[in-house]
Design a protein around this nucleic acid. Structure first.
Lengths: 232, 232
DNA sequence: AGAGTAGGTGTACGGCGTACACTTGTCAAT
DNA sequence: ATTGACAAGTGTACGCCGTACACCTACTCT
């Protein structure tokens, strides 16, 4: 009633890239990346699908923007620490980000070109290696060796959090054990060995991630101390 | 002219799952996985799209079948060798398969449930660890640590084979070096250091893969010889 | 000869990304 | 106050996708 009649009939704020990206991230967090479509993002924003295209060129640019948004959440490097601890901490921070945004791993992998935020992140990681006394060459190889683990990726073949029903799951395991003897042996131990890091709820992902990460970091440290002959 | 008139007007053999899968693999090899559609597979086979559905339940089952087809190409384990060499050889064979079928990596990763051929492959890999004197527990952790590398995956953040024009590429690198100092230092060395394993055509993927693989295998071997206190 | 059935067909639906032409709301210059 | 430019949102439409469902057709078995 202030100045125009239909003012309160359209209380939505104007669109902009950030608002669109945040809506897209929220939708992806909630419903998974597969069901994310331009049309649904538009609907969420009470807008017609084509309105989005005033602010993002296409869906690929949208995905890039989403990636940048979440990569920016990774903690900055802690320069006061030992290189290994600094890198370890940051990678675990990246991993927490990936756990908050489960879609991010697949989207990150699917980008052909890294986004600015990702390049910046890697640049800082290289900085940590160099500050830790690595040669440029070893840093380069190290980067390749760490691969996407440097961004907190769990590089599993498949995740093992399927059936809700533990009964069904057990049956499945038993069937598997019969057809695949070695997997069978592993399951037998792993399923009822409380002293191991594997409980009844499957594997301890966090432990496994850190196990692999430390294996890699320690291997790299050894190479830094006494360079491998096959390296330049 | 033998028995029926229209025989040579329809020379196509009857459809079956294998024929469909082979056509799908060929199309994916040729045009990439993104452009692979049920409709195109049908067209390739001179058949109407819905005809495929007599032989595969849906597209997901098609992708599973394609995966099984190519995973079956991986060489069987060479049991006469040392565990490390046997595993190394087999993983490199898997890697060659992934290079022959570039779409396979992404499809493999996208499957929620592993296919029978993949499970069988992993079972044999576990067998190699166990035969090599690993405990079940360490084998389990090792499997997690190797992750998808065990199937020959290059776990890069992004592949670096973009622009065809070396001029453009150089410009791009220079722009990047300006914004990202550490990447800049790395590029400076890596671009014109013939003694390094990095030539002008970018990085030597095969070297980097084996570097990471050996780092992992050697780390695991050390753990097998003197178990880490933090492990059970 | 007739019935059953497996395999290929045709049509159709709802979803997708997005091109393109349009209206509408805002504000500067007249 | 009028105009006209311009940015932002709308509406319609196209071609692609996976696939449900009803149909036809040719062959097997009795």
């Amino acid at each position: 009633m202030a100045t125009k009649i239909d003012q309160e009939a359209k209380p939505r704020s104007p669109l902009n890239k950030e608002r669109i990206l945040r809506a897209a991230v929220a939708l992806a967090d909630a419903n998974g990346i597969d069901s994310l479509s331009m049309r649904k993002i538009a609907e969420e924003l009470d807008v017609v699908p084509m309105a989005l295209y005033r602010h993002v060129a296409n869906k690929d640019e949208m995905l890039d923007g989403m990636v940048d948004l979440v990569v920016a959440e990774i903690d900055p490097p802690e320069t006061s620490l030992d290189w290994k601890e600094a890198m370890r901490g940051r990678i675990l921070s990246a991993r927490r980000m990936l756990q908050r945004n489960p879609w991010a791993a697949r989207v990150l992998e699917s980008r052909t070109e890294p986004t600015p935020a990702v390049i910046g992140y890697i640049d800082e990681m290289i900085g940590l290696f160099l500050a830790g006394g690595f040669t440029i060459e070893l840093t380069h190889h190290a980067l390749h060796a760490m691969g996407s683990r440097i961004l907190g990726f769990t590089q599993e073949l498949f995740d093992d959090t399927p059936d809700v029903d533990p009964e069904t799951e057990k049956e499945m395991y038993e069937a598997m054990a019969e057809a695949y003897p070695n997997i069978g042996r592993m399951i037998a131990i792993v399923m009822h060995d409380d002293s191991s890091r594997v409980g009844e709820r499957g594997c301890d992902d966090q432990f496994e991630f850190e196990f692999a990460l430390d294996l890699m970091l320690e291997g790299l440290e050894r190479l830094r101390e006494r360079p491998h002959p096959s390296l330049t």
